[in-house]
């Protein structure tokens, strides 16, 4: 446990002192700020601020474009870069279980990603301080959904990062996987029968748009996001374990 905490702290610290992570954070804030301003300045949102959370966390560009791309970028340094610079082997031979390594890196990424969402929350607070009468159930619901989605995308990014030392492949593979998770169910959502039913039960933006952003927490959506995150963490662990056997 002590080794796990030490590794987690090391990972969080290394992100906190990484210029790359802060550039990523800055770009994220910039793009989100622009989306926020564009949404806020539309007549519809000005007339009813309740429409802002669904726009940002549900059907807007944040979910469809930005959210799948950023978590894998944060994850590339977790395994792919360690592999590239040769520090992964010493880590795997250290007296710490492989799964603890995976979990420590993942939780560190999650904690750092909360900073990403902290900036978005700051935008809503800014609005509140300037007299915006926000529906906090919708804001916090939407943010909960978005945070859980980003945790899922971090898990897929981590898995993609564990596959090779190639940073582009790690980030690109993770992002591609995330886009698949978003777009494939959307394509088959209206299909009849089992295919349509499966697609609807995997449709992340629907969870965000029709559930979380409307101020409704759905147990299935929570299980879906946490379950898939756990699956990708397990697959990452399997990948690390198999490296010992098939380098």
């Amino acid at each position: 446990m002590r080794a796990f905490v030490a590794l987690w702290r090391r990972e969080v610290f290394s992100m906190m002192v990484s210029p790359f992570a802060f550039v990523l954070l800055g770009v994220w804030f910039l793009l989100n700020g622009m989306l926020f301003v564009v949404a806020l300045n539309t007549q519809q949102v000005m007339d009813d601020l309740r429409l802002l959370p669904p726009f940002l966390f549900g059907s807007g560009m944040l979910v469809w474009l930005l959210l799948p791309a950023f978590p894998p970028l944060l994850c590339i340094r977790l395994f792919a870069e360690e592999h590239r610079v040769g520090t992964l082997e010493p880590l795997l031979t250290a007296p710490i279980r492989d799964f603890a390594v995976v979990l420590a890196k993942y939780l560190a990424a999650c904690v750092f990603f909360l900073l990403f969402w902290g900036g978005v929350l700051l935008l809503f607070l800014l609005l509140h301080w300037h007299g915006g009468d926000l529906d906090w159930a919708r804001v916090l619901g939407g943010m909960t959904g978005a945070i859980l989605t980003s945790f899922l995308f971090l898990a897929t990014g981590l898995w993609a990062s564990s596959w090779s030392s190639n940073l582009v492949l790690g980030a690109g593979g993770g992002a591609a996987l995330n886009y698949l998770l978003l777009f494939v169910p959307a394509l088959f959502e209206l299909n009849e029968g089992a295919l349509g039913a499966v697609a609807r039960s995997m449709h992340l933006p629907n969870f965000l748009d029709r559930g979380f952003s409307a101020g409704l927490l759905d147990s299935y959506a929570l299980v879906y996001m946490l379950g898939l995150s756990a699956l990708f963490l397990f697959l990452t662990w399997m990948r690390l374990v198999s490296r010992r056997w098939v380098p």
């Binding site: 800055g26 804030f29 910039l30 700020g33 926020f36 301003v37 806020l40 800014l126 300037h130």
Partner: peptide, 13 residues
Amino acid sequence: INNMSVYGIPGVT
């Protein structure tokens, strides 16, 4: 609000 969202927060970061 616009300035803080687009310039302030990203700039500080």
